[in-house]
């Protein structure tokens, strides 16, 4: 791991809602998507171990978007996305992004951990009101980059940790990869998407951006009995590569 140039979140235009907390925890960041993303906290190897056991990462800086309303899924299919018929399932796209179908006409799109932003930028650029009369209904863009904070929770203990904050059974044999739970977490609404990294259970957690500091603290507290702590994006990327 090469030393990263010191990047300060507050020098960027776009800031994670919890940048003060990751910075205080010693995050080393990289600029992605015009925001600072914590890549590691000083020791990537121990973070890899931690990610296998119990960890949380702040991915709020990574690209995401969403579309909703009549015509959404047809339009996205026309844009080359593969979206299955079931709601509350997430569908992997070429390039790694995940299209989470929250409802028959609602898609929350999160980038893969390589975070190229390619698909998301293209879709954001492609959507417009158009000039046809009557207008073809293609859904409406949603400000998903900003409405939700995005954390990833990984490790074998993750289901037990979730059981401390969430009433939905997220254990691996009850909550298959790709499944989505839109539910209450630590008394606030959130979206959980199972997206394992290699053989390690992993979950995206998307929740109200304005409560991000609260939720980060609540999750850290819940995972402390399992030795959980923050890890950077690098550990998550390695988790996907290295057979564990």
């Amino acid at each position: 791991m090469g030393a990263l140039p010191k990047v300060f979140a507050q020098n960027q235009l776009r800031r994670s809602p919890i940048y003060r907390l990751t910075q205080a925890a010693g995050a080393f960041c990289e600029v992605i998507n015009s925001g600072a993303v914590p890549m590691h906290y000083g020791n990537s190897d121990s973070e890899l171990d931690r990610a296998r056991r119990m960890a949380i990462a702040d991915l709020s800086g990574l690209p995401r978007t969403g579309f909703k309303g009549t015509g959404t899924v047809d339009w996205l299919a026309g844009q080359g996305l593969t979206i299955g018929p079931d709601s509350n399932m997430a569908y992997r796209q070429d390039g790694g992004a995940l299209a989470a179908r929250l409802a028959p006409t609602e898609i929350f799109l999160i980038d893969g951990l390589e975070a190229t932003g390619a698909l998301i930028d293209r879709l954001n650029g492609a959507w417009n009101w158009g000039t046809e009369k009557p207008r073809k209904l293609i859904g409406y863009p949603m400000p998903r980059q900003d409405s939700h904070a995005w954390f990833m929770i990984t490790g074998d203990a993750a289901p037990d940790m979730f059981a401390k904050i969430c009433g939905v059974d997220l254990r691996p044999h009850k909550f298959a990869p790709g499944r989505i739970a839109q539910t209450s977490l630590a008394k606030m609404s959130g979206i959980v998407i199972r997206d394992d990294r290699g053989a390690i259970p992993a979950f995206h957690l998307l929740a109200d951006v304005a409560s991000a500091e609260y939720l980060w603290g609540a999750v850290l507290d819940a995972m402390s009995e399992f030795g959980g702590a923050p890890v950077g994006l690098q550990a998550l990327r390695r988790l996907g590569e290295v057979p564990s």
Partner: peptide
Amino acid sequence: PLNGPRNISE
């Protein structure tokens, strides 16, 4: 009907 069985508190 959308999310399946959940605690009534939701």
